[in-house]
Design a protein around this nucleic acid. Structure first.
Ligand SMILES: NC(=O)c1ccc[n+]([C@@H]2O[C@H](COP(=O)([O-])OP(=O)(O)OC[C@H]3O[C@@H](n4cnc5c(N)ncnc54)[C@H](O)[C@@H]3O)[C@@H](O)[C@H]2O)c1
Ligand SMILES: NC(=O)c1ccc[n+]([C@@H]2O[C@H](COP(=O)([O-])OP(=O)(O)OC[C@H]3O[C@@H](n4cnc5c(N)ncnc54)[C@H](O)[C@@H]3O)[C@@H](O)[C@H]2O)c1
Lengths: 203, 203
DNA sequence: TCTATACTGTGAAATAATTCACTTAAAAAC
DNA sequence: GTTTTTAAGTGAATTATTTCACAGTATAGA
């Protein structure tokens, strides 16, 4: 399979999530047009994307929701469960820690980390929490592949370095600074302020 | 000015944020190349973007950081302060409510809303909180332009409808469902799970 | 003051993404 | 059983975006 553009991957991820909703509504088949509508794109693009991935639908019926979900999951390696750790257990970090839906979607938060012993002692959660000093060990022991950064911006780069050194493969960064990561590490920013800026620019 | 692509706007928003960091470091001028590096794009694209916006740099020096920030702010209407309201004051919503950096960046959270009287009574925050029943009134009174959705997915569409009816111009949605909004309303999803999926697909 | 340099700014070229137009095929309707 | 309809699949055309190449120039340094 030729490698996919970021745009395609992004759309497929959205479709993947959208299929959940369809399954809940017990919808068995969905056309490229309806899919496009639910996603804010065009039927052509949806068909091209799916066709690029080599998944296929049915004339006059559309795509089999259940089957499509399975196929997309396989193609994008979304079926295997991934373990994640959160660094920075402040307001945002603890909210993420307790967000149960991640697990449902195949992303299990298996550890939280903070530098403040005080914080670690006070936190009430189901998830095991550790000092950042133990990060490397815990990442290895628990096979953590994904690191989630929720520390203040001043600490973000340092935490990213630590995570990469510990062997995580991907990083999701909630701090408002872009951090640099070694070649080969997948990195994504979730900058809420930028999102608001984007909206403001479009107003 | 011809209208800008989403890609360009997204990059400019990032540059805008990046310039803050440069100002803190007291860097006066920055070249398209350095800017590109800090953003994960190319110098060509940066120059094209800035040139498209009609802002201009200096031979052999690059772009004046302070001036560029001002100019980009004007071009993207990022200089005027925007008022926002958050609907859904659970784990995520309250974290957002207390996040002070929004204000620094020109987005002032002027109200929180929830449907649970119980929750409203317990919340300890500087920001005024209201019942969703008062949403329409408060949005009008406080000139709220941006709505932030942090309610459970089942309630998201309903809340979006209420916000739009109340007159907000833009919506940032943290719930994992895509909601539909009337023509003319700017809408953006912040789906953390999709972000993790994207990373997993790239691993 | 002069010169070499390191930048920008921008048309043109290359590449990528989207849209279109049309073929094919299965299901539904009659 | 035949016809009609609806939607997938896909090369080709179009459109958009990125990259390139280089002319122009203000600055730093001599
Ligand atoms: N709270 C929000 O709603 C919100 C919104 C947008 C962005 N953010 C960003 O998310 C990040 C976290 O925000 P927050 O509000 O949760 O902050 P917070 O101050 O509540 O929490 C930060 C936590 O990180 C810990 N920490 C600091 N340095 C550390 C290090 N080197 N290693 C490990 N832990 C460390 C602190 O002990 C603290 O518990 C920040 O970068 C913030 O800008 C937060
Ligand atoms: N917590 C996280 O870290 C996290 C992560 C990703 C996505 N999200 C999404 O963000 C949203 C909020 O998550 P949360 O963890 O804060 O949930 P939560 O259950 O803690 O809070 C939801 C709040 O919304 C209120 N609410 C419910 N219906 C409402 C309505 N119709 N009008 C006004 N208020 C209403 C509830 O009273 C509650 O206070 C959810 O859609 C969730 O999927 C949360």
């Amino acid at each position: 399979m030729k490698d996919l553009s970021n745009n395609t991957i992004e759309r497929i991820c959205k479709i993947f999530g959208y299929l959940d909703a369809l399954q809940k509504k017990e919808i068995g088949f969905i056309s490229s047009r309806e899919l496009a509508q639910g996603l804010g794109t065009t039927e052509y693009t949806v068909r091209k994307d799916l066709s690029t991935l080599g998944v296929t639908g049915h004339t006059r019926r559309g795509y089999d929701v259940k089957l499509l979900k399975t196929q997309l999951g396989e193609k994008l390696h979304l079926t295997q469960k991934r373990k994640a750790g959160i660094v920075g257990l402040g307001r945002l970090g603890t909210a993420l820690l307790d967000y149960e839906k991640f697990k449902v979607d195949g992303f299990e938060i298996v550890a939280g980390f903070d530098c403040s012993i005080n914080k670690l002692e006070r936190i009430r959660t189901q998830i095991d929490v550790f000092s950042v000093n133990d990060l490397k060990r815990v990442v290895a022991e628990r096979h953590i592949e994904l690191g989630i950064i929720a520390v203040p911006e001043a600490a973000a780069q340092n935490v990213a370095d630590t995570l990469c050194a510990a062997g995580v493969k991907g990083i999701l960064n909630f701090s408002p600074v872009k951090v640099t990561v070694p070649e080969g590490i997948v990195y994504l920013d979730m900058d809420f302020t930028n999102a608001l800026r984007f909206i403001a620019a479009r107003l």
